[in-house]
Structure formats: C-alpha cells, structure tokens
C-alpha cells in the first residue's frame, strides 16, 4: 500500500514537472484589443562570410540563435565561439535551426576576415552565419536581442559587449537566453532549443 502511494506520488510530481515546462515570450508585451502583442526583432539585412545577404527571411520558418563577437576580441569571444560551436555540432543536420553571429567590429571584420575565421572554427554557412554590415545597424540590433554592444576604447579590443546567446522563435520573439561563457548555462539553453523545436513544430511533426 505504502509503495503504491509512493509511486503514484512520484508519478504525479513527475507528470506535473513535464507539463509545467514552457518557454515564455521574453519580449515586452502589451494587450491590444484583448490580444497580447509583443515587441520583436526588427528587419535586418547583413552580409555573411560567403558574401551572401542574410535577412529575417534567411531564418523564415526556423528558430535561430544569435550572439555578438569580433574576430580580434581577446576576452570572452573564443569561449563563446567554443560553445556556439557545440550548438553548431548538435544541430548541424537539423534544418529547422539557424545561427547568426554579428561582428561588432565591422571595420576590421570584412567578409574575407570572417571567412578565415569561419574556416578556423571549421564551420559553414548557411547553418552558422558570421555577419558584417552597417555599423549602426549592427550595434542597434543588439538592443533587440537584449544584448549590449558598444564602442568603448577602454574595453579589451575596443568594444564592450556581453556573452549572451539568444534564442529566437519563428515569430521573431525571444524565448531563451544564456551566458555563452558558462558551459552549464549553454547546456540548459540547448535543452530549451530542443523544447522549442518540439513545441513549435508539433503541428507538422
């Protein structure tokens, strides 16, 4: 009797846990005519390591991961690149997932420089896009991704930016955030990605 009670209790707790998992939209929302309307990632157009234009349409119907970096960044970038690389390896063959890394040092990081960096990282577009573009637009869009990217001559490498990885759903909304220098946080982030894939594609799969 006792064991049955114990098992049913455990089951109850477990089922509760699995049902509870949701990924809320993290953007600021407002109720308009009884419906929630959330802020979303603005329109953008950048150029990747293969000189190919990358826009919102590139990620149409996909979920994608975004972060900021620059190739000569001496502080956190190699570590974030390592962990972005783990995400790349894990979702390499899943076409529902895209990746974009914005170089915030557009003067140094031309397309050929990005290409060399991509080769060094042993990664390829269109899965993982290392992009450059209009400096103002690149620094401005960081705001949409809840990230900081600022010119700062006192910072190592001349730019101040954070280590955030941001997960965007099919509707340009932010669903998960991780610190890209923290391996455990990135593990959790990848689980969130799996979860989002399941919930976003549940109608088709």
């Amino acid at each position: 009797m006792r064991t049955i009670l114990f098992f049913s209790l455990t089951l109850l707790i477990l089922s509760n846990c699995t049902e509870k998992k949701t990924l809320k939209i993290l953007n600021r929302g407002e109720e308009v005519n009884g419906k929630m309307v959330y802020e979303k990632i603005r329109d953008f157009s950048f150029t990747n390591q293969d000189s190919i234009e990358v826009t919102n349409k590139t990620f149409g119907g996909k979920i994608y991961v975004s972060n900021n970096f620059f190739t000569t960044c001496p502080s956190i970038c190699p570590t974030t690149s390592l962990h972005m690389g783990r995400i790349y390896d894990r979702f390499l063959n899943d076409d529902r997932v895209g990746m974009i890394s914005h170089s915030i040092d557009v003067r140094t990081d031309s397309v050929p420089v990005l290409k060399t960096y991509a080769n060094g990282l042993e990664i390829e577009a269109p899965k993982w896009n290392l992009v450059t573009g209009n400096e103002e637009e690149i620094l401005a869009i960081a705001y949409d991704y809840f990230s900081n990217a600022l010119k700062d001559e006192t910072a190592p490498g001349g730019f101040d930016h954070d280590d955030l990885f941001v997960l965007i759903d099919k509707n340009r909304h932010i669903r998960s955030i991780a610190h890209g220098t923290d391996p455990k946080d990135v593990n959790r982030f990848m689980k969130d990605m799996e979860f989002l894939l399941k919930s976003e594609y549940s109608e088709t799969k």
Partner: peptide, 15 residues
C-alpha cells in the same frame, strides 16, 4: 584561459 580554454585544448583551427 578565455582563449586557450580551461583544459588547454584551444579552439579548433583558430587557437
């Protein structure tokens, strides 16, 4: 450590 990594493995073909 941030470039050569905590376990000294570096970063693919970059570091």
């Amino acid at each position: 450590q941030s470039c050569h990594m905590p376990d000294g493995i570096g970063l693919k073909g970059l570091i």
